[in-house]
Amino acid sequence: MSTERRRERIDRPIKAVTDDIFCLSSMREIAYLVIPRILPIVGLLLLGFLVPTYWRKVIVITFIMGMMALSWDFMASCGLTSLGQALFFAIGAYSSAAVNHYLGLPIYLSIPLGTLIGAIISTACIYPALGLRGIYFSMVTLIIPLMLMRVVETTGILGGTEGITGLTHFPGMFITTTISMAALWATFFGLRRLIDSDYGHIFVALKDNDRAVEASGLSIRWFKVQAIFIGSAICCFCGAFMTHYYMSVGMSAFAVDLSIFPIAASVVGGMGTLAGPLLGAIILGPLSEALRTFGSFRVVIYAALLGTFIVTLPEGLFPYLARKYQQIERWVEAPGGISED
């Protein structure tokens, strides 16, 4: 007779104690709570300002990609799963480039303006699809950027295939790093705060049960518009930022890898957690830089990684690590053969 075994999960004693804020009584308990929160902030600060210049560029790109991932995760937790985050990025990039190039506005105006205008245009672009749910919405978001790319390509507006070049550059690397890092943390904490607020609960409700939201007297279309606006504004900022960083904008702003990266980061890190996508971006960003020499195989590796993670570790790295941090796992015998959990 074979006895089945199952994995038992118990909260660590220190977790049980520190769950209640009143019970903090030792440095060890404080450290248990504080270290996982401080570590990433300090770590990124050190990374951002101390590494050699070449890697600093990589880190700036990683920050921007992290924001894209956060935005994707936010939209996904509102039930708006986009397969075309590149659309928002491109619209933001082109808006700020146009403002800078055609109107000659300085960089500190063109980025905010580009973000705002871009978010409005993005929301208008997605508006027709807001009546759709789940994969229907995903399909449409996949199509729109690729189609818009065709429009720019064939009609030759906004520089056509050449793109717009010769844009204003950031004053220096220090400022670039500072802005991108500040924006990343602002996005992260802002979104987390938003989701936890009463207003943010409407967005959570939107995904859980949109008909019940409608029966609560709230127009889901209007709240979806707001969610898209918030999500796309973040991506548009990324677009605007990168445009000025590269001093040019072109067709590559619509590229598929810009849509894939946020999804990959979220899936690897853990969807719906906000911290997960951040972690995912910090892992994947430098990785993709290291893989640059592989050319188009880079996207293959991304996509393969994405597929592997979604099958083998669907919860993502962050919840997995959090569990390891907070719980003791051990195998116990399960008479009667109970499966895990």
């Binding site: 894939i260 996207v299 994405l306 597929g307 979604i310």
Partner: peptide, 13 residues
């Protein structure tokens, strides 16, 4: 969502 991501990534691969 996972189905979409999985098939999409396979297509890209």
């Amino acid at each position: 969502l996972s189905e979409v991501i999985a098939t999409f990534s396979l297509g890209i691969v």
